[in-house]
């Protein structure tokens, strides 16, 4: 194994190794990052949510976006799969339906990067358990 010869070497090495723990670090403090949850139930997977999730993960990394992509269960919008839920830090979550790679690209570029809303938002009409209380 090669020896680390200087602080510069060490820092370079750290930069290379960061990726392997980034996922864990972000998870420790989820509210500080943009969170994207992809509905990955049977209906979602059948309509291509797995590909969308992979795309979101790869692209946000390529574009250097501070995003945590996680998978969720069925969100109930089976008519509009794949659905994803985007939560910017400190904001309310918004749900998008019929997300393909093109849509995902738009969401990353506009919503995540600039905070602009994109067409395709599914309005929330139901009440959550928290609200009932």
């Amino acid at each position: 194994m090669t020896k680390i010869k200087s602080l510069e070497d060490l820092k370079k090495m750290q930069a290379g190794l960061r990726k392997q723990i980034e996922l864990r670090e972000k998870g420790e403090n989820p509210d500080a990052h943009t969170q994207i949850r992809v509905a990955m139930a049977t209906c979602g997977i059948a309509s291509g949510s797995k590909e969308v999730m992979d795309y979101l993960m790869e692209e946000s990394e390529k574009r250097n976006l501070d995003v945590v992509v996680t998978q969720a269960g069925c969100m109930g919008y089976c008519h509009s799969e794949p659905t994803i839920e985007v939560t910017l830090p400190g904001e309310e979550p918004l749900t998008y339906g019929n997300v393909d790679k093109k849509k995902a690209d738009e969401i990353l570029e506009k919503h995540v990067k600039l905070g602009q809303l994109v067409d395709g938002i599914i309005p929330v009409t139901h009440k959550t358990i928290e609200e009932k209380k």
Partner: peptide, 25 residues
């Protein structure tokens, strides 16, 4: 709870040994 204790790479990824670098350098 974050690093694998048997992996020095995990520790280095968490800025491990950088304090040592700063102190020595």
């Amino acid at each position: 709870g974050i690093v694998d204790p048997e992996s020095i790479d995990d520790y280095i990824a968490r800025e491990g040994y950088q304090a040592l670098g700063t102190v020595l350098g």
